[in-house]
């Protein structure tokens, strides 16, 4: 069965000399456990930016982390129990962690979950609204410390991942190149990118098209695919368009 696992509000402001794992790191550790224990196969983690507002408590950037997985149905309860214990154990003491696990095929109204995700990017939502929707949709939503406020972001993260059109993938794509120029095909061959696309022009690069690697190579979630966004930097000597990967500042709006 395909599931979404999303967590939020697990960390605290980092303190010198004290190791505080970010929400993304905790999501990675849960994902790793799922695969190591043979519970299922996971897809990459996405980061989803939520509303920054004075009425919303958050550590530093108010984002949630989510991944999709195809798991053995018999392992669902075990996964939820493990993830719950893990968040209690690994979250920062000051954190307000929340966990959402949604079985996609069992969602009564998937569109409502997606709508909740987008609302969390634009409005201040409450725990009560999150629990009400979770009950209506029939998904798991639980809090594991502090105020439990993280359930809002966890639910929203699941909705935004389900939308297929929000967030950026955790981690950089590592690709070797002595010249700093690679083909779109070699990027896709890493298995971490479905498409290399110029978002401004709406052009999907051919595998033979070349692009210049910037200092960060990250994919974003668009139309349910891992898309590496590139922008035009003119044409080469033969008149072929040249492309470059987005910089960090260009990526920040995803």
């Amino acid at each position: 069965m395909k599931i979404l696992l999303s967590i939020d509000d697990t960390d605290a402001m980092k303190v010198e000399g004290v190791e505080v794992l970010g929400t993304g790191e905790l999501a990675s550790m849960i994902k790793q456990t799922v695969e190591e224990r043979g519970w299922g196969v996971c897809e990459p983690i996405t980061r989803h930016q939520l509303l920054i507002h004075p009425d919303i408590p958050y550590t530093s950037h108010n984002s949630s982390m989510c991944f999709m997985a195809d798991i053995d149905a018999d392992r669902l309860d075990e996964l939820i129990a493990y993830s719950s214990d893990f968040l209690v154990r690994e979250s920062a003491p000051e954190a307000d962690p929340g966990l959402c696990v949604a079985v996609i095929d069992r969602l009564s109204h998937p569109g409502w979950l997606i709508s909740f995700g987008y609302m969390a990017k634009n409005y201040v939502l409450t725990k009560e609204e999150a629990y009400d929707l979770a009950e209506t949709l029939g998904l798991h939503l639980s809090e594991h410390g502090g105020t439990g406020q993280g359930i809002i972001g966890a639910l929203a993260g699941a909705g935004l991942r389900l939308s297929g059109n929000d967030g950026r993938f955790k981690g950089k794509i590592k690709i070797k190149s002595e010249t700093g120029i690679v083909t779109a095909g070699s990027i896709r061959a890493t298995g971490k990118v479905d498409l290399v696309k110029s978002l401004e022009e709406g052009i999907i690069l051919e595998d033979s098209d070349e692009l210049v690697l910037g200092d960060t190579v990250k994919a974003v979630l668009l139309d349910g695919k891992a898309v590496l966004p590139v922008y035009s930097i003119g044409k080469d000597d033969s008149g072929r368009p040249r492309w470059q990967t987005y910089s960090k500042s260009q990526m920040k709006d995803f």
Partner: peptide, 18 residues
């Protein structure tokens, strides 16, 4: 964390954990 970096300048308040 790498996932939270938004400035192209590596040393920038925009990239600071604090």
């Amino acid at each position: 964390d790498e996932d939270e970096l938004v400035a192209d300048e590596n040393i920038s308040c925009y990239n600071c954990r604090y």
